[in-house]
């Protein structure tokens, strides 16, 4: 019996974000709001963004979910705060490609900050949706509905 394999998924930084999520709060002056659910597990994310022009000047999330979904949302809010919508959406696409196992450059991964650590989710196919829910919420709230 061994849970050693779990260490690649539940890295220290992921557990830290899950236990002490960043930006887990409702915004008083959000310009964009969205609620997304993962119907298979009941995870819910309410994502709120304050846009000033095309720059994300504040971001917050509420809702509930597993360690992976909570830490992913926390890391995402860190990554996109003070970025433009174009930069944020590019990051969302990089993240999506990364967890699906597509090729990505180190420079691209660096843009994601802590969130890049979730590339380990590839080894746990059943959990990919947990990691991507918040990024889908970001894309939808910014009007990017492309499937890929």
């Amino acid at each position: 019996m061994s849970l050693n394999g779990l260490n690649s998924l539940y890295r220290e930084v992921i557990l830290d974000h899950s236990e002490h999520p960043h930006h887990k709060q409702s915004l008083s002056s959000a310009t964009n709001k969205i609620t997304l659910k993962n119907p298979t597990c009941g995870d819910v994310i309410n994502l709120e963004i304050k846009l000033d022009g095309d720059k994300i000047t504040d971001i917050g999330f509420t809702g509930e979910g597993c360690t992976i979904s909570q830490s992913s949302a926390s890391m995402m809010t860190d990554a996109v705060l003070n970025k433009t919508t174009a930069e944020s959406l590019e990051m969302a696409h990089i993240f999506s490609d990364m967890v699906m196992g597509k090729e990505h450059s180190q420079a691209d991964l660096d843009k994601l900050g802590d969130a890049a650590i979730l590339s380990s989710i590839m080894q746990f196919p059943a959990r990919i949706k947990c990691a991507t829910l918040c990024w889908w919420a970001l894309r939808k709230s910014l009007g990017d509905e492309d499937d890929d």
Binding site: M1, S2, G5, L6, L9, I68, A126, R127
Partner: peptide
Amino acid sequence: HDVATALDMD
């Protein structure tokens, strides 16, 4: 889900 993933590793 975290519980189920952990148990699956066992």
